[in-house]
Design a protein around this nucleic acid. Sequence first.
DNA 1: ACGTTGATTAACT
DNA 2: GTTAATCAACGTC
Length: 213
Amino acid sequence: MIAAPDRTPLAREFFDRPVLDVAEDLLGRLLVRNTSEGPIELRLTEVEAYAGEADPGSHAYRGRTPRNDVMFGPPGHAYVYFTYGMWHCLNAVCGPEGRASGVLLRAGEIIQGAELARKRRLSARNDKELAKGPARLATALDVDRALNGTDLCAGPDSPLRLLHGVPSRSDQVMNGPRTGVAGEGGVHPWRFWIADDPTVSPYRPHTPRKRRT
DNA sequence: ACGTTGATTAACT
DNA sequence: GTTAATCAACGTC
């Protein structure tokens, strides 16, 4: 007998904790996107923690700007940023207000609305690739900066929410270095994923860019 | 391995 | 005000 996942939203207090605790605890939870065509639901399988202004890997490292403003606000809200001229990535803001920590939602398994996700991810060769990577996840769920600042703890009519779902057992949670983070920020094993899950993205080390002369 | 693409920001005038 | 380097990535080669 398998218990049905808990479909109540995560409470504000869930996010108002140290970011590493929140990151690990988010694995197995449900991310629900209400689109005009219907809901898309995703079970989180991979995340990364970003620890505020002291973290060289964080957008907040150089202080508060219009772009990262949401990270400095109250926990439990969505921080969506645009990167590489093409893609969006989705984070959940954590910790006490002003701390500017957050969890990047890197990958997941689409468990409902796959037909809607496939329409947005035409290059995906199979359903396991629909949300295998942070920009793929955002694309599959039709997340862009219009959703920046969305309250993830709100009611069922909200466009983007995080529900309790079925949290992963701690003995299935792996951790290691973050993807693509250079220098001292790269030493922290702050990437968390569910062991042996086929929707987890491959690890990619930081690639230094060529300096233009 | 390489090209794509544009917001953001530091470093200039 | 203007410029140029940077960037938590993906798709195609």
